[in-house]
Design a protein around this nucleic acid. Structure first.
Length: 469
RNA sequence: GGCGGGGUAGCCAAACGGUAAGGCAGUGGUUUGCAAAACCACCAUUAGCGGGUUCGACUCCCGCCUCCGCCUCCA
C-alpha cells in the first residue's frame, strides 16, 4: 500500500515513490542547538520520525538526513554571552537534543551533518552562484542572493510580491542589498562574532543560515531528492530560499530540487502559541518534572493530524496515559493468547500484514491520518476477544497491532514492580492475612497504616499489588 | 494589508454528499467484605453564524464572525 502525503508545492496528496526506484531519500531541517528543544520542536521531529517509520514498515527503505544548525546568529550570540567556544556550546545542546530524541523513541537519522563542518561546501556554492550571476558581493564583504535572477522565487509560499508587515522595521544588520527580498549567503565578520569567522574570497565572515541546508543536501542527497520537511514556519523564507540557491546552482536547472514538500503545522499550548512570556513553553524535562513520561508526550504529539494545529493540554497528556494503558492491557491479553512474550522487533515487522488492523494501517498510509488510525485501533481492540481466538489468530492480531505501534513509535508502559521495603511488605502480609480471615476492621486499619507509609494496596483474586502513592 | 490553516459534545479529535469514528472525563451495571482496577452499557437529533445548490450538506458554493500561523534567519 503506497503512502500518500500532502505536498505543499502542488497542494495535492501524492503517492510517494522513490525517485531512484529503491530508497526514499529525504531531508529534514533539524534543530538550532542553542538551548533545549521544546515540545513544539518535537512535534515536527516526531512526525518526521513517524513518516519514516510508515515508509519503512511499508517496505520502502529510507535515507534520512537531518542537519544540526550550530552556526547562526543565536548559537554565536549565546555562546559568546556565556563565554564558551561555539563548539563546546553547541556540543552541549546537541547531546541534550539527542537524549531527548532517544527518550521520545525517534530513530536517529542516517546522516546528521552540522553547518560548521560544511563551510567549504557553502563557500563553493556561493562562488558558483556569483559566477552564474545569481549573487553579488556588497562593499562590506557580505554576499546576497539576487532574487530577481530567479523568476520562480515564491513558488512554494505563493508570495510573489512580498510586502513588509506594517511597522516592521528593517533590522540594522541588513547590509547593502539591491532589493529588500535579497537574502544573505555570506555575512561579513562583525566584532561581536568573536572568533567565529572564516576566510572567503570576498572577506572574512560566515555563511548565512539558509545556505547550510542547500549545501548539505547537495553533498548527501544530490541536486534532486525525494522529500524535504520542516515546520510550517520554514515554508517562507527558509525553504523558498533553499529552492532558489539550490536550483540556481544545479546543473539540471530549475524545478529539480525536492520532489515533495512535507510541512508540519505548529503546536499550540492551551490554545496559544508557545512563548516564554506566556509561560507555556515546555521542554521534555519540564513535563518529566510534572510526572509525564516521554511516551505520553509522544502519544499526544502523534494523536492529531499533522496538518491541523494541535492544542496541547495537560488534560490531553492525562488522556494519553489512560489510552496507552488501555492499549497495553489489550496487547498483553493478545500476547498471552498468542504465546508471545517480548514485543517483535522493528525489522521483523517490515511488510507485516496488519490483519484486523488493516483499517488502521490504511488510514495511516492515507496522508498520515494518525487520529483516524487510533480510532480504528481502539475499535479493533474492542472487537477482538482474545479468549475466542485460536493461538494463530491471536498471533496475527498481535503482530498486526505491533505494526501500528511500531509505526507510531509507541513503546507500551511496562508493569513495573516497585521495590517494596521490608517494613511495608510485613504490614501488607499482615493485612492480606487479616483480609483472608475476614477480619475487616483489622484489614482496613492496616490498609490505613500502609497509606500512612505512602503505599496503596489493591486486592486481587489470588494476590495483592502494592504501589507507591 | 498579503498568503495559509482552523472553528465538531466538558476536554482532545476524525470521517463522510445520504444522515456525526475514537480517546479522556462523566453516568449506570457486573465484580469486590469495602475499595481500586478491570469488564459491559450509555453518553452530540447536532456541527461558529446566515444564505444558496441538492431528493438529501457537518460535508459543495457565497457572505459574515472568530481563532491560529507565516510575511527575512522561528519546528
Amino acid at each position: 500500500m503506497p503512502l500518500t502525503l500532502f505536498d505543499t508545492m502542488s497542494r495535492a496528496q501524492r503517492e510517494l515513490t522513490p525517485l531512484d526506484g529503491s530508497t526514499y531519500r529525504f531531508y529534514a531541517c533539524g534543530p538550532t542547538v542553542y538551548g533545549p528543544a521544546h515540545i513544539g520542536n518535537f512535534r515536527t521531529f516526531v512526525l518526521q520520525d513517524l513518516f519514516r517509520r510508515v515508509l519503512e514498515l511499508g517496505g520502502t527503505p529510507t535515507k534520512h538526513v537531518r542537519n544540526l544548525t550550530d552556526l547562526d546568529d543565536k548559537t554565536i550570540r549565546v555562546s559568546q554571552e556565556q563565554g564558551q567556544t561555539l563548539t563546546d556550546f553547541t556540543r552541549h545542546w546537541t547531546l541534550l537534543f539527542h537524549a531527548d530524541c532517544a527518550a521520545l523513541h525517534c530513530l536517529p537519522p542516517h546522516i546528521e551533518p552540522s553547518a560548521v563542518e560544511h563551510i567549504p561546501h557553502q563557500v563553493r556554492m556561493i562562488e558558483e552562484l556569483i559566477a552564474k550571476g545569481h549573487a553579488y558581493a556588497a562593499p562590506d564583504g557580505s554576499v546576497y542572493f539576487k532574487i530577481t535572477s530567479f523568476p520562480d522565487y515564491g513558488r512554494l509560499s505563493r508570495v510573489k510580491e512580498r510586502e513588509l508587515k506594517q511597522g516592521a522595521s528593517v533590522s540594522d544588520d541588513e547590509y547593502e542589498k539591491d532589493t529588500l527580498g535579497d537574502f544573505a549567503l555570506w555575512k561579513a565578520r562583525k566584532p561581536e562574532d568573536g572568533p567565529n569567522f572564516w576566510p572567503a574570497p570576498w572577506g572574512e565572515g560566515r555563511p548565512g543560515w539558509h545556505l547550510e541546508c542547500s549545501a548539505m543536501i547537495r553533498e548527501y542527497l544530490g541536486d534532486t531528492f525525494d522529500l524535504h520537511s520542516g515546520g510550517v514556519d520554514l515554508v517562507f523564507p527558509h525553504h523558498e530560499n533553499e529552492i532558489a540557491q539550490s536550483e540556481c546552482c544545479a546543473d539540471s536547472g530549475h524545478h529539480g530540487f525536492a520532489a515533495h514538500w512535507f510541512h508540519i503545522t505548529h503546536l499550540l499550548v492551551d490554545g496559544k502559541k508557545m512563548s516564554k512570556s506566556l509561560g507555556n513553553l515546555y521542554t521534555l524535562a519540564d513535563l518529566a518534572a510534572k510526572g509525564y513520561t516521554p511516551e505520553e508526550v509522544r502519544y499526544v504529539l502523534t494523536a492529531a493530524h499533522y496538518r491541523a494545529q494541535l492544542n496541547f493540554t495537560f488534560d490531553s497528556l492525562d488522556g494519553a496515559r489512560q489510552a496507552l494503558a488501555k492499549i497495553a492491557r489489550a496487547e498483553r491479553a493478545l500476547a498471552a493468547r498468542a504465546g508471545q512474550d517480548a514485543a517483535p522487533s522493528y525489522e521483523s515487522l517490515i511488510g507485516q500484514d496488519p490483519g484486523p488492523f488493516a483499517p488502521a494501517w490504511t488510514a495511516l498510509n492515507h496522508d498520515l491520518n494518525t487520529a483516524e488510525t487510533l480510532g480504528h485501533v481502539f475499535t479493533a481492540l474492542k472487537a477482538l476477544k482474545p479468549d475466542a481466538l485460536t493461538p494463530a489468530e491471536a498471533l496475527a492480531a498481535w503482530r498486526g497491532l505491533h505494526l501500528i505501534l511500531a509505526a507510531f513509535g509507541i513503546v507500551l508502559p511496562q508493569e513495573k514492580a516497585d521495590e517494596v521495603p521490608a517494613e511495608v511488605r510485613t504490614v501488607a502480609e499482615a493485612r492480606w492475612a487479616a483480609r483472608n480471615a475476614k477480619d475487616w476492621a483489622e484489614s482496613d486499619r492496616l490498609r490505613g497504616e500502609l497509606d500512612t507509609l505512602g503505599w496503596t494496596m489493591k486486592d486481587g483474586r489470588e494476590d495483592y499489588t502494592l504501589t507507591r502513592k
